[in-house]
């Protein structure tokens, strides 16, 4: 227990400068009266890997969508201190989003799906094709450019979805339980590849999950949330060094960290 420890509250930022996103006193009440998120404060630094961990109904997906700009908070603000803003004062959010389902366009090939964000941004077709193909190769799908989503396995579809999320080289990648529907073997493999991508591409990763094991394996920092109403209960640093691999997954440190985070999650559910 020397290399890996859990420190709380969250103390050291990996790259000390200004945070990328500041969530301040954000609450969200839906039209039907449900208070999905209550008074959440959170800042996301550049290059972090943050997991939002909590039981279903704790508002973690709602929070993620608000960060993405899909649905405004009922109260509070979400600031992007380091980004430019357009004339209307909207921040030019530089982000990618990966949904729980792969959410691919079934009528388009893997390559066309990954090209979509580039096309929408007005990138020339030839360049878009090239960049999308490079991104597909990066997620391990070289040779599947012309396959349609239905011809791909669940894990491969998720890879296409991640490639699409990263193709604009965003500063931040938001992921909403992306691997929840996959089998364990595929999930482990994708976790490893995601970490490798994050390490290489140096984006900020925000990862919503309800799996303690997944969150500990992946993240530098875990934000534990509780339900009804959704709120932040704990903000933990996971100090185990990267790169993490199969050895880490089977180490006593990992088991210990999982136990501690499990305890925190239990507290959060019990409260």
């Amino acid at each position: 227990m020397d290399t890996a420890s859990l420190s709380t509250p969250h103390a050291v930022r990996p790259e000390g400068s200004k945070p990328l996103v500041c969530v301040r006193h954000v609450s969200k009440q839906f039209g039907n009266g449900t208070l999905a998120v209550r008074d959440v404060n959170l800042s996301l630094g550049a290059g972090e890997f943050v997991s939002l961990l909590g039981p279903s109904g704790c508002g973690k997906s709602t929070l993620l969508r608000m960060i993405a700009g899909l649905g405004a908070p009922s109260s509070g603000t979400i600031e992007w201190p380091t980004t430019t803003h357009d004339a209307a004062g909207e921040p030019q959010r530089d982000l990618g989003f990966v949904f729980q389902d792969p959410t691919l366009m079934p009528w388009a090939s893997a390559l066309a799906n990954v090209m979509m964000p580039l096309t929408l941004k007005g990138v020339r077709k030839a360049e878009a094709r090239e960049r999308a193909a490079a991104m597909l190769a990066l997620v391990g799908l070289k040779g599947f450019e012309n396959s349609y989503p239905r011809e791909l396995s669940g894990g491969m579809k998720m890879r296409v979805s991640i490639a699409r999320g990263l193709v604009l080289r965003p500063k931040i990648l938001l992921m909403d339980e992306p691997f929840a529907a996959l089998d364990e073997i595929t999930r482990h493999r994708l976790n490893d590849d995601l970490l490798e991508l994050w390490w290489k591409e140096k984006f900020t990763a925000v990862f919503v999950t309800h799996s303690v094991f997944e969150s500990v394996y992946l993240s530098r920092r875990i934000v534990v949330m509780a339900a009804r109403p959704g709120r932040v209960m704990a903000d933990l640093d996971v100090d185990a060094p990267y790169p993490r691999d199969e050895l880490f997954r089977t180490s006593p440190e990992y088991a210990h960290l999982c136990r501690v985070v499990s305890g925190k999650l239990k507290e959060a559910i019990g409260s």
Partner: peptide, 13 residues
């Protein structure tokens, strides 16, 4: 490690 089932295997086609 189950390297053959990596989510990219061509068996899935």
């Amino acid at each position: 490690p189950a390297a053959a089932h990596d989510g990219t295997d061509s068996e899935a086609r």
